[in-house]
Amino acid sequence: MRLADLFRARDVSRIESLRLAARQAVEGLAVGRHRSPHKGSSVEFKEHRPYVPGDELKNIDWKAFGKSDRLYVREFEEETNLRCMLLVDQSGSMAYGGERARSLSREAQTSAAGASDSAAPWWNGTKQEYAMGLAAALSYLMLSNQDSVGVMTFDAKVRDVVPPRMLPSHLNVILNALVQDHRGGETDLGTVLRQASVKLPRRGLVVLISDGFGDVESLGRSLTLLRGGRQDVVFLQVVDPDELDFPFEERVDFRDLEATDRHEIIDARQIRDRYLESLKRHNDMIAAACRRNHVDHLLIRTDLSLVDCLSRFVRMRQAGPVSGAAHEAIQGGPSVEVGP
């Protein structure tokens, strides 16, 4: 799998132009653009400290000595690179692709067939494929910004783990891990996030890409655990437009993607209102859990192009809080829906 198989050339150039910043201090292995909790050499002055034997003389602030007759050492903030871990949901529910998302994918394929740049034949409109593309784009973005990026796929449990690296060649490793087919089984986001938190020892950016279908309380507890580990967490909730507005009019045999033996034949019109009410309640609970744990929450419709979605996400991160929710942005992050 190559990046060119996922995005057209002009989309790749647009991704390259993006720059994702961490909202808080992160710990990296290399010097980068992101604030580090450690002091180091940079142009950003942090504080004065009394001189102790062993300190380098070049760091003594002689002007302060002249004024106070005491030796002070100037300390500067350390700048490091971003360590980002992408948690990609590959559970059964992510396999759903509605008609509108498929239409978008067909448009993309049709336009790609007539264009000289690469196409996106891999995308059939499912949420999983959208999540995979989103993860790939984020990975490319990170690596192009000299940040470390890794990926962890999961369904009912953690499947593949690619540790964060900042090498350009690391992108292929990530892509190969993403395309591994582990679909099936039920999602348990809470359990998976608790497992993932063990494998994220240092403060960094955690991007959770999932449809969020599952136990919200468990998810909330896991987010709390991640936030306890000083992780900057972003939850990209990928949902199909059909799941948002339930457009079905006829009797439908709904077969569970996470348990094939479970199905219900229902007159879709009869339950639409109650479904939408239930979905809203579910999403409200997710948003509340994210707000409570200062987690940026983005609701992404799969009928939005990946690059547009990514650019909006990056702009939101760069601009800080969205929609005037300054307090929420500082405390954590707002829940926003990203769609066409």
Binding site: G92, S93, M94, A95, Y96, K127, D211, F213, G214, D240, E243, F248, E250, R251, V252, D253, F254, R255, D256, L257, E258, A259, R262, E264, I265, I266, D267, Q270, I271, R274, Y275, S278, L279, H282
Partner: peptide, 25 residues
């Protein structure tokens, strides 16, 4: 006897509704 088959992800949302409203429906 005529219905459309659909693989559905958000089944947990439907299941609660169906269980609560089966008799009413």
């Amino acid at each position: 006897s005529r219905f459309r088959r659909l693989d559905w992800g958000a089944m947990f949302l439907l299941q609660d509704i169906v269980n609560a409203n089966r008799r009413r429906m």
